[in-house]
């Protein structure tokens, strides 16, 4: 176990370097040139060559990468954006990430807040029509594309009822967050419902529940102290997963509701071949992903001792 963790930790920086280097290389070797985008309709090869040389874009790849990583490691300097000329990458990315994280958090709260009680209900009604109905409705909501939920919400709540603001960002406690969070959170409810339902059923079959019931504890106590609490362990572990999953899907919601988040920025950066901003995202995302992976790996044996770490190396 100890050896395994150490091995993983040593591997981690290599992983980040390999991934960022390949991303760096693909960006630069792939089609598209930020200077050409600056030039727009005035393509001029001389000007382009001159500016590329000034920016150091013509240097060998390894030198460019080394220069970039040196800035990142020694000064936490991610460079200057190519799209927002004159702005540093930290300035461009910083607040966006916070916005996206808050929105995702709000969405997760909706997913879990609705999903857990409904899942519990489904489990307790197991085998009845209610059970099937609940799961089917959750699945139906999951099947609705955002292309219809977002416009419908906008029309109903913003235009006709005029109870919610149409768009913008006002922080976590502003009413502006309500609609986007609902649109983002609802499709995930089905996942949580089925997760909770399954784990509650699992717990219901456990000895301690039978014991508790046999002891004559009130049904409510049994349900909330014994069943729900134990059933929620896997849900807690899924929290991170749901959050990470949402992070990938915020683009359209950001666009429909005018939220200055990461999704739109990364698209714009890609369109403009804004290498520094894209690399900033790549480094943050990779590090986050790798760390999350490690933590999860370490958590699993603790949750389920049957999984042995390093079990891959069967002689």
């Amino acid at each position: 176990m100890g050896v395994y963790v150490i091995r993983r930790l040593i591997w981690l920086p290599f992983l980040v370097v390999i991934v960022t280097f390949i991303t760096f290389a693909m960006l630069r070797l792939g089609p598209g040139d930020p200077v050409q985008i600056w030039l727009g309709q005035h393509q001029n090869d001389e000007v382009r060559e001159r500016i590329r040389a000034k920016l150091g874009l013509d240097d060998p790849l390894f030198i460019q990468y080394a220069r970039y990583m040196e800035g990142v490691i020694t000064r936490l300097d991610f460079g200057e954006s190519f799209k927002f000329r004159g702005k540093s990458v930290r300035e461009v990315i910083g607040t966006r990430i916070l916005v996206s994280m808050q929105l995702n958090l709000a969405a997760v709260i909706i997913t879990l807040g609705v999903g857990i009680p409904v899942g519990l209900l489904a489990a307790l009604r197991q085998g009845t029509g209610w059970d099937n109905l609940i799961v089917s409705i959750a699945l139906a909501f999951q099947s609705l594309p955002v292309f219809i939920t977002a416009p419908v919400m906008l029309l109903v709540f913003a235009l006709h009822l005029d109870v919610l603001p149409t768009s913008g960002w006002g922080g976590f406690f502003s009413p502006k967050i309500i609609m986007p969070a609902i649109v983002m959170g609802v499709p995930g409810i089905a996942i949580v419902v089925r997760l909770v339902r399954a784990s509650v059923l699992d717990v219901l079959g456990q000895e301690y529940v039978r014991t508790a019931r046999a002891k004559g504890l009130p049904e409510l106590t049994v349900r909330y102290r014994h069943i729900l609490r134990n059933a929620l362990i896997p849900v807690t572990t899924s929290f991170g997963f749901i959050l990470a999953g949402l992070a990938g899907g915020t683009f359209i919601v950001e666009i429909y509701f005018g939220i200055p988040g990461v999704g739109r920025l990364s698209l714009e950066a890609l369109n403009a071949r804004d290498y520094p901003v894209l690399m900033g995202f790549a480094i943050i995302a990779t590090t986050f992903f790798v760390l999350a992976n490690l933590i999860v790996d370490l958590m699993y044996p603790w949750l389920d001792p049957r999984i042995r770490l390093g079990a891959g190396h069967v002689a």
């Binding site: 594309p145 955002v146 683009f251």
Partner: peptide, 10 residues
């Protein structure tokens, strides 16, 4: 579904 959404780009 969410990502599609992103597609929404526009």
């Amino acid at each position: 579904v969410l990502v599609l959404a992103c597609g929404g780009g526009s």
